[in-house]
Design a protein around this nucleic acid. Structure first.
Lengths: 142, 142
DNA sequence: ATGTGTGCAAAGCTTTTGCATCATC
DNA sequence: GATGATGCAAAAGCTTTGCACACAT
């Protein structure tokens, strides 16, 4: 009642803010956990509902299912991602996207109208490279 | 008794053959359905088990989860894919992969050791382009 | 005989949904 | 009051797993 409209849903705004405030590409449960302290009555269903809604309205994006969980992203600039095989972390990659020439090549090869691309690299993040180099100690750390 | 070993598992061989004999990137259930007539006692669990095993042993590949289902591929040549937004079909794309220069750029930008890439285009296949152009009739055909 | 592969059914897990309630305007 | 958002719990849906039995060498 401050004269300003409450932004419709405080929790939806918080979910979007949580997404924008991290580069971790969290899962629904990750978002839920990060918000739970501040919103003790938050429900996982609400997080799912709003995450989907934010994606539909173009305010957020989904990376798709990685390792069994759908991961979400608040960064709207076109970019690729790299999943670390060691720790599962997902890092942003701004240089690994196909250029217009490649999109044209795809159109030409397939006869399809290309609308978008999603590029997912696999590799080892800087933290996990040394672990891998020592030996096979880097099996399963979260 | 033919002197030759039975290839260990006839059903596993059939599953791999089914994968290699199509460019449809089927789901587990798709493989199951295509083999069921010939192997009436085939179980979906067997398909899942062998599909996973074939991927682990490098004889097949997984495209990841697309539209809720994991899709599999018997084509081992590195290539990208395009998912048609109209009909859901997945078509092979052999020209849309990042080159070594891009991989190096990713390494340089992120400090990660790049091991692989998976590229997924979105668009409209030749069959669905006209449908889209007429009007919005192309909502939900399988 | 021994080790694998398989069918069946149950369990697992993430995500969605129904419904009653609560908040917002 | 009407519309939209939420919590809770149940349902849904794909995939995995346990176990007993069958098959291959």
């Amino acid at each position: 009642m401050q004269g300003k409209r409450e932004n419709f849903s405080r929790k939806r705004a918080a979910i979007l803010a949580a997404l924008r405030g991290t580069t971790q590409h969290p899962t629904a449960e990750g978002v839920f956990n990060s918000l739970k302290p501040q919103y003790p009555d938050l429900s996982l269903a609400t997080v799912y509902r709003n995450l989907n809604r934010l994606c539909e309205t173009g305010q957020a994006a989904s990376l798709g299912v990685i390792g069994g969980y759908e991961r979400f992203d608040g960064e709207l600039t076109p970019h690729a991602h790299l999943v670390c095989a060691g720790c599962g972390r997902v890092v942003d990659v701004f240089r690994g996207l196909p250029g217009q020439a490649q999109l044209d090549a795809v159109s030409g090869e397939t006869g399809c109208r290309v609308q978008g691309v999603s590029v997912l690299y696999t590799g080892l993040c800087p933290d996990c490279i040394p672990k891998e180099e020592q030996d096979g100690t880097a099996e399963d750390q979260l």
